[in-house]
Simulated assay, not measured.
Amino acid sequence: MSTFTIFLALIVVVAFLLIVVIMVQNPKGGGLSSSFGGGGTQQLGGVKKTTDFLDKSTWTLATLLLVLILASNIAINRGSESVDSKALDLDAPTTAPAPLPTPVPSTNDAATATPDDSTGE
């Protein structure tokens, strides 16, 4: 298994976790953070701490995703060639496309034309 494949698998996992963390959040104060608060005086973990945890985990996962994407670019196997394009290859043979033959007008075209008899006259 190549290094790029490992990075690709990690990117997929981190992207999935980031989606889950973002979907759990609710900008109006609801979502998972309101279920921990419950509206009463008893709080399991506290609303403020849950919001802070979700906020920090979102930024951490987003940063990790960006770092993994940049690191995967380094791990791509580019082969042994250093030239990316044939246009940049100076040793490549240069061949010009063959010119297309130009049609020569014939003087018999006007003489062999027949009138259209589709009108019935």
Score class of each variant (00 low, 15 high):
M1P: 12
F4D: 08
T5R: 14
F7I: 07
F7K: 12
A9Y: 06
A9E: 10
V12N: 04
V12S: 11
V12Q: 07
V13L: 14
A15E: 04
A15I: 00
A15F: 07
L18Q: 10
I19A: 12
I19T: 13
V20H: 00
V21L: 05
V21H: 03
V21M: 05
I22G: 01
M23V: 08
M23C: 08
V24R: 05
K28E: 12
K28P: 00
G30D: 07
G31Q: 05
L32K: 00
S33C: 06
S34L: 03
G38N: 07
G39Y: 09
G40K: 14
Q42S: 12
Q43G: 10
Q43R: 14
G45I: 13
G46H: 06
K48A: 14
K48L: 05
L54N: 01
D55G: 04
K56M: 11
K56D: 10
S57H: 02
T58M: 11
T58N: 13
W59M: 14
W59S: 14
W59G: 15
A62D: 04
T63L: 15
L65Q: 05
L66S: 09
V67D: 04
L68H: 04
I69V: 15
S72N: 15
N73V: 12
I74K: 11
I74L: 11
I74A: 11
I74V: 15
I76T: 10
N77Q: 12
R78G: 01
R78W: 07
G79N: 03
G79S: 04
G79D: 04
S80L: 04
D84W: 04
K86V: 13
K86N: 13
K86H: 09
A87W: 01
L88W: 08
D89A: 15
L90G: 09
D91Q: 14
D91P: 00
A92V: 11
P93A: 13
P93E: 14
T94R: 09
A96Q: 12
A96R: 10
A96D: 10
P97Q: 08
P101T: 02
T102P: 00
V104M: 05
S106R: 08
N108H: 02
N108C: 01
N108P: 00
A111K: 05
T112D: 07
T112V: 06
A113C: 01
A113M: 01
A113Y: 01
D116Q: 10
S118Y: 12
T119W: 08
E121D: 13
E121Q: 10
